[in-house]
Nucleic acid binder design. Structure first.
Lengths: 205, 205
DNA sequence: CAACAAGTATACAGACCTGTCTATTCCATT
DNA sequence: AATGGAATAGACAGGTCTGTATACTTGTTG
């Protein structure tokens, strides 16, 4: 039996806490936030209810922890994938959409958790909605940095356009998963090429 | 007191039924589906519970009726706005994004109800999710007809690109309502111009 | 007037939800 | 061996949810 205790009580390494957040993340992503009851999380995580309420003050706090984990992982995966796949600015822009295509191909793809969160918690002042907005802001900031490195005349404008393509591809794949919608990432990639050429000039690397 | 009865019992003109669907539509849109209880709909609509269950077999049936009404109204408004505003194919494509800008400017804008529905009812086989997918399919079909009228070499491809821009602008405005996000429609419009030029040629009307 | 259709009010069943409380077990360190 | 922190099981309170059942009102039509 492994040592599941933690010398620093409230540290993020606390094993039981991790089990909770990990399983909550999966369930919230697959089934939704309101539709997933606390008891279901506890059952899947194999953790007692009192343990949850020792680590989190409420279900909303657990949701926020799950979203923080998701944000960290998703953006890391996003950035690493892009930087590994391509070295030129143009190649990195296009690698965004290859990343999306791989994501969409996962049979467990259930849309963007942050879009879903802002749908379920519509009030903009709700911390959950705010966390979703912050995630999108950080993603756009990264794309904007790519655009700066590409010496785009207006990096923010190019980034905004590419992010709109990203979100559009995500949401169409989520809402219309069947049909010929598997190609949303490819369509977005083609559109991105046209927009990049327009912003950078056709010859830019 | 007006005559609220209806000679055809299950016709869509049934006044009480209309009151239910109308108010359910508003509440589901503003607060979400799971977050809006039946009792809240009844209270706002001023209708007794038994009347609801005489017209609908379940809450899900009421949601489907609300989505049907929303789909009909939204697409009518969309198509009429575009056809009224512009006569040339290129003008009509751009009018799409003016329509979005007006929609986003409404202080009660709460995102796309169909995107929200597919977020809350993630199972693709769920009739509610299917209704959302059908709505998006019909919108894209209309944009595809516009592209055909514009004599685009590949109408479906142009329509798919423009629809991705639409959905991206919608979702970014929903998730990040504040900041400089009010301009998502304008950014999408600029991107659309580039894509249309690429597909049709710069001189096309 | 009588029959009828539509809606109302109200209570209720049964399920599920979040969050709390208590008593107990396990295990590592002292 | 004793102590104490962490987790456990399980019951429970109090609320909300959907959907049903019953008895009543109202207005129209034959």
């Amino acid at each position: 039996m492994p040592d599941t205790r933690n010398p620093i009580p409230d540290s993020p390494l606390s094993s039981k806490r991790d089990q909770l957040v990990e399983n909550a993340l999966k369930l919230f992503e697959q089934e939704g936030f309101h539709a997933t009851g606390i008891d279901r999380v506890l059952e899947v995580a194999g953790v007692a209810k009192m343990t949850l309420y020792k680590h989190f003050r409420s279900k909303d706090e657990l949701i926020l922890a799950a979203l923080r984990l998701r944000d960290e992982r998703w953006r890391n995966s996003f950035m690493r994938s892009i930087e590994k796949k391509a070295k030129t600015p143009r190649g990195r822009f296009l690698a965004i959409f290859d990343f999306l295509a791989e994501w969409f191909a996962d049979c467990k793809f259930a849309g963007c958790m942050f879009i879903n969160a802002s749908a379920e918690y519509a009030d903009h002042d709700n911390p959950i909605h705010a966390a979703a907005a912050e995630h999108k802001r950080l993603v756009e900031k990264y794309v904007c940095e790519l655009a700066s490195q590409a010496h785009a005349p207006d990096p923010a404008a190019l980034a905004a356009q590419l992010c709109i393509l990203m979100e559009g591809a995500i949401v169409l794949t989520q809402v219309c998963p069947s049909e010929n919608r598997g190609c949303a990432a490819a369509v977005a990639k083609q559109a991105a090429e046209v927009l990049i050429n327009d912003a950078l000039g056709e010859q830019a690397p």
